[in-house]
Design a protein around this nucleic acid. Structure first.
Lengths: 151, 151
DNA sequence: CGCGATTAAGTCGTGCACAACTAAAGCGTG
DNA sequence: CACGCTTTAGTTGTGCACGACTTAATCGCG
């Protein structure tokens, strides 16, 4: 991994010079790799991310979920309805603030956690990075996300 | 950037431990950053990627475009129709192989290249990576993409 | 208390992204 | 030449993703 083998001038319009395309392609490739694993759970990738948050902290509002995943309510509301229809969670208005909706796992949703435990392992194997590369990639991606969100 | 500050056990189900989520979030954040710039050109982000390919090599088949962008014809066909409707390209059956459709830029499409030249610069600035970080990120993302596509 | 501003969730419309499938063209081997 | 296989685009259906908007509840300030 020697950097800057033949990096061209900044502002190139060549597709393969663009970090943004590498990012876009990698994200879709990883999601595609998840698909067969998540199919067995009956989840899509964004639904899986929602479940990850709920396994971490149950009874959370749509707003908090959106903050964790950086998604709008207009994306989450229909997604949560589908998860509810599939019996994985319930949505109930908060009594103390009826604008807010609490998302709670059902027993089925909570139990899915065990079946999902092997998923990150499989994906980690498939990505095939060393622990250092994995940590470095995460750091760079978070740096990009933070910088791009800031300006 | 010291790696492995407090990396947990492999196979964690914590959202913030997952490289896949960092990838997904970064990709959406970068696309969001493109949006106002591309709005001025009347393009979406995937449409912009198609234009990048065409500025590089005009008169290309849908299949070749799909190979370059790793997208299915079921994604590209409607997208190309919209670009055609907007006057940026034309689609014509190849005479020597009528299964194939050649995508050619119109003058309007070709001329957009100059207006687009500033876009990668703006995005590069917004990402705020050093040249070494940029090159390293690209390498890691390509490694992930290749590994994940392989297995 | 009253009322304008804010906040939370949701709806609607557009455009990807992909699986499954279709239609049509070209190819290859007996 | 014939017929089955492959290749190329395109269609259809589902599910994100997001901007613009709506509705309802809450807040805050006079």
């Amino acid at each position: 991994m020697s950097p800057a083998a033949a990096e061209p001038a900044e502002g190139s319009l060549l597709l393969d010079d663009q970090l943004c395309f590498a990012l876009y392609a990698a994200s879709r490739a990883v999601t595609a790799r998840y698909r067969p694993l998540l199919d067995e759970l009956g989840l899509t990738y964004p639904q899986y991310l929602v479940m990850l948050v709920l396994w971490e902290q149950d009874s959370i509002s749509v707003r908090e979920l959106g903050a964790a995943l950086q998604l709008e309510s207009s994306t989450l509301s229909p997604l949560l309805k589908r998860l509810e229809a599939n019996g994985l969670l319930r949505r109930e208005r908060r009594l103390d603030d009826e604008r807010s909706v609490a998302i709670r796992l059902t027993d089925t949703g909570a139990r899915m956690r065990e079946r999902a435990a092997s998923v990150p392992v499989s994906i980690g194997d498939a990505m095939g990075l060393t622990p250092d590369q994995d940590a470095l990639a995460k750091q760079l991606l978070r740096l990009i996300t933070a910088n791009v969100a800031a300006g």
